[in-house]
Write a protein that binds this DNA or RNA. Sequence first.
DNA 1: GTCTATACAGTGATAGAC
DNA 2: GTCTATCACTGTATAGAC
Lengths: 237, 237
Amino acid sequence: MTADVTPLDRRRAAGAETRQRIVAVAEVLFAANGYDAVGLRDIIREAGINSAAVHYHFGTKEALFLHILRLRAEPIAAARMERLDALRAREPFELRDVIDAFLRPALEQAEPADPPRANYAELRARLSGKHEDTVRQLLAEIFDQSSKAFLDAIRQCLPDLPEADLYYRFHFLLGTMVYTMANPGRIRDLSFGGTDPFDFDEVLSHLVPFIEAGFRAAPLSKPAKRPLRRPAKRGKP
Amino acid sequence: MTADVTPLDRRRAAGAETRQRIVAVAEVLFAANGYDAVGLRDIIREAGINSAAVHYHFGTKEALFLHILRLRAEPIAAARMERLDALRAREPFELRDVIDAFLRPALEQAEPADPPRANYAELRARLSGKHEDTVRQLLAEIFDQSSKAFLDAIRQCLPDLPEADLYYRFHFLLGTMVYTMANPGRIRDLSFGGTDPFDFDEVLSHLVPFIEAGFRAAPLSKPAKRPLRRPAKRGKP
DNA sequence: GTCTATACAGTGATAGAC
DNA sequence: GTCTATCACTGTATAGAC
């Protein structure tokens, strides 16, 4: 039985372990120093392997990064859907709970972990503009489904809000979220140390009411260029 | 008189022209392709000069980029102060006008120009994370004065808003602004072409009411330092 | 003072031996 | 499946012409 472990099996096992070690080392370095500041040679030194091993397992440095980014982004999308399903289970739900369900999974990840790992915000923020298109495509693939589900939920809470306003305001929601996650400590600087560096529970307690009020602002309903179409009260297409 | 033009003067004039051409070429390339995607060799080829000329005038590629960024950022800060002064000349002013005065100069720059030039949002967005600290320092130097003036103006409009809430909400304001400027066309994607790609006047007409409503939301008015800590609500053993 | 020619140490990627 | 050797390319630095 034990003799069934062939040299090939042992190599495969070693390969899988090498792969894991590359990811573990790379994600910490990327998150701490940024994509461009980390050379492949830094990764291979820390992981005790050869440069070609990275290329064998992941192809390119960019692909390695995207692999890690996906690793941290997918749980966020999943957690959002889970929370939204929980809300839908006990309708009617409140707008603020929908907003909270969307934001919390993303902000939670910024908490420090042991063993240290990257979080989505750090990775997303520290990527150079060169790979913008690839990243945008990856994130669209991961987040589009849940984003659409949340747009539906918000629309359900605000049936009188014109579609254009809904999309604009969801866009603004994304802006505050990304900026807040990408700039922890920024609030502290502005306020001369008056607020906590990054307590995601406190951030959420400020962010959710802000966004909710924004969503509840009077819609534009401007008679100008293009009269905005009424959403036609779509319940289910 | 005309004989007073020495060879040195001619060299200086030529030098200034070279400097200008470097900036003109570099800012278009940077804005279009991103910092990392543009090599110094792309710039020198397009400008018809040698690589050491760039090194002579600006020292490093990063310094050249920061020079251009400053060139586009400073007018924004100046325009903000100008608009705020105009508001203060006819007090009392409205919160929405303060917000508009802050956002409009930044968004206006995104309009296309001829000859083509970079705008602040493109430059800021397309920089890699490697130079984050340097950029943050530069932008702080440029924007801190006007930001503080606007914080004062907002505080004047909302005298009952606690300081912590003020800073948080100003931070959220920055987030929506940066994200919107950095992602023109993002709204169009979300809404399947329902809204304009980048009409800064339309964007402002949506953004200003959203932000104003956020600022006017009920403050947290938390009694203790840390009331948000749920003592032992953890359902996990 | 301004700029050209040239060289240098670093990067990510790759071919091919083992 | 893993490694050595090497590639083309990057940003930077220096010497020296004008």
